[in-house]
Design a protein around this nucleic acid. Sequence first.
RNA 1: GGGUAGGUGGCGGAGCGGUCAAUCGCACUUGACUGUAAAUCAAGCAGCCUCAGGCUUUCGGGGGUUCGAAUCCCUCCCUACCCA
Length: 395
Amino acid sequence: MADLDTLLHRGVDTIYPSTEALGELLKGGKKITLYLGVDPTGALLHIGHTVVLRKLAQFQQAGHKVILLIGDFTGRIGDPTGKDKARVPLTPEQLADNAQTYKEQAAKILDFDHPTNPVELRYNSTWLAKLTFADVIKLAAHFTVQQMLERDMFEQRLQANKPISMHEFFYPLMQGYDSVAMDVDLEIGGTDQTFNMLAGRTLQKEINHREKFVITVPLLADSNGVKIGKSEGNVIAITAAPADLYGKIMALGDDVIVQSFELCTDVPMAEIKEIAQQLAAGENPKFAKMRLAREIVTLYHNTAAAEAAEAEFQQVFAEHGKPTEIPKLPIPTTTEALTVLVELKLADNKSAAKRLFEQGGVKLNDVKVTDWKAPLILKSGDVLQVGKRSFVELC
RNA sequence: GGGUAGGUGGCGGAGCGGUCAAUCGCACUUGACUGUAAAUCAAGCAGCCUCAGGCUUUCGGGGGUUCGAAUCCCUCCCUACCCA
């Protein structure tokens, strides 16, 4: 179980108004109500999302009341960041589906079925949809335009002469009102949500006349500030199969190893310090990263899966062997090399297939094939490889 | 309402009548290197054609001028800035 120190410090960026104030509240043994708001986009949860979920889980384990708020109303309005793509409004069915998907994934970290203290799932349309225009105006009166413009996202866009839509100002209001409606003690979110969460703090103070604490957790990012798991095709989904999950973690840059240990595993901080020292002393980061991958796979699967994934990884990458599980596909109907790759989904289109051949990325039974004009004759049992990681076995 | 500057490939951002399928950066793909990476280097990055060549569809939407348009004209839509 997470102790107070862990709750307040590990994987925490900032606590508003102060760590001490929240510490005082919790020290008294009071059980508080806290929540995380998420958009029902239906997207896969990646390793970056787990940071905040894990923080919630710590609070749940400590006996506090955790609410997972599905922003179905907020999501219905449309996300301001995608500027010109008119967002297709989600149907109630889609919303329900997405919420379910989210819950299923989050259930790997949060306990929705705890006998006495389950995580509660709520929807913000419950209260937001009922607000009248007059209510909204009243809410808006709690803030000034200048305050809204303080948000660095707005400031940057203002600087860059980029559009800011009126309705974007309402996001902080809506999100902030969630805090009031649920009358919570604490909200947790990524550092990118600071402004919105603080808007909720202001509203909670002015409307319910009480403090709402805010904890921000760091976003997993490499030394260049690139969010981990964000780049396409490289999403580390927590639902990924053990071998895949393991491999994806090994592909992370060395500079996020220590941070990832702190944010994504339960390895004690003292041990993490040791690891950091060993790395600083020049030890091969590979070993630290293997430990990291093992820890994470164990967290979302189990020890046996982690060991199997590691063995698999050794075989495929360290020894350049083949994975144990290769997808089997029927032999294509054609022998025309480019079409074969496309049919086996090893290339998006023929042009791409051609490039793969020309650049030496295609191997048939470990033999490089570069002539795409020649017919590619496959027989059952042949293994076709594209790039380092894509294999297909014919059957 | 008036004026000005703009809308280009996943993103940023050049081009401003032909040599533009569109410089460049990021992202992505493949190869080399390696520790599996990262960094670095090389190549690629609209689609199609048995392909050192050719064809088709792209530069906010629609229409036009021209042998030829991302580039000029008309019109519509959208955005920012300044003035009211």
